[in-house]
């Protein structure tokens, strides 16, 4: 091998490494950018701000709910279209700047407490479990899943906080496989809120499973309360 060839190899190798490094940096950057954007399913004060701005300027005629749903999504797209921005229905840094809103680096969930109905953060976390565990289930089935989490919080055999119950190792498949990190849809949020407000179609159940896939013998020894959708609920 001549020196020239060696040089070639080295430079090609260097190019590969550079690409690898760039890819790495890109992915890291992208996740950081995602954290600072608001889209369908986001909620909190920032969403309130977006909705009021859009309403002021006549792009949005829905209620100011602090929840980024279909109406907000459509209004944002309309706003982006009219203002020559990339039309994706997501309020990222550029759209936010055009709206005159500072997104900051914070998480999209709000920290405002809502009294009686529970903390907004808790509702959002609960909604994420519901979304991950009960997609495709009837609405009542979603309320039931949220109710089971809350029943565990009140039960002595389980942790005493919503986060403690949800993140107990192995407790929920959606937590193990990361589906809990998906943005919950509007129905999951509604179901979480209903459960938080005391609706419990399972009457105090603390376990649920899908009879078609559950393999544990122990779980079948529990007294079943009710069957809703694909799941059975038990104490």
């Amino acid at each position: 091998m001549s020196d020239r060839n060696r040089l070639k190899i080295v430079s090609v190798l260097a190019a590969f490494l550079f690409i690898a490094a760039a890819l790495n940096a890109y992915y890291t950057d992208r996740s950081a950018a995602e954290a600072a954007a608001l889209g369908w399913g986001s909620s909190g004060d920032k969403v309130n701000e977006i909705q009021s701005k859009l309403k002021q300027w006549g792009y949005y005629d829905g209620p100011i709910t602090g929840y980024y749903g279909e109406l907000t999504y459509k209004a944002v797209r309309l706003f982006q279209q009219k203002n020559g921005l990339k039309v994706d229905g997501i309020v990222g840094p550029e759209t936010a700047a055009a709206l005159g809103i500072n997104l900051g680096g914070g998480a999209p969930a709000s920290s405002a407490s809502a009294g009686g109905g529970g903390n907004q953060n808790d509702i959002y976390l609960l909604a994420r479990v519901v979304h991950g565990e009960a997609r495709g289930e009837p609405y009542v089935g979603k309320v039931a899943i949220a109710a089971v989490v809350l029943n565990r919080v009140r039960h002595p055999d389980f942790p005493n906080t919503i986060a403690g119950v949800i993140y107990q190792p192995g407790a929920f498949t959606a937590v193990d496989d990361g589906q809990i990190n998906l943005t919950p849809d509007e129905e999951s949020l509604k179901a979480a809120r209903d459960a938080m407000n005391g609706w419990d179609p399972t009457y105090g159940a603390i376990y649920y499973w899908n009879p078609a896939t559950a393999t544990s013998k122990w779980i079948w020894s529990r007294p079943i309360h009710i069957r809703i959708g694909k799941h059975v609920f038990a104490k």
């Binding site: 609405y139 179609p201 399972t202 009457y203 309360h225 009710i226 809703i228």
Partner: peptide, 28 residues
């Protein structure tokens, strides 16, 4: 009829559809 429930209460559960309304109700 949807399902029977036990636990704190024994119940009868029903799925209900309404006239001129697209979304289902559930009642125990």
């Amino acid at each position: 009829f949807s399902s029977e429930g036990s636990g704190e209460f024994s119940t009868w559960g029903f799925d209900v559809t309404l006239k001129n309304y697209d979304h289902p109700y559930y009642i125990q």
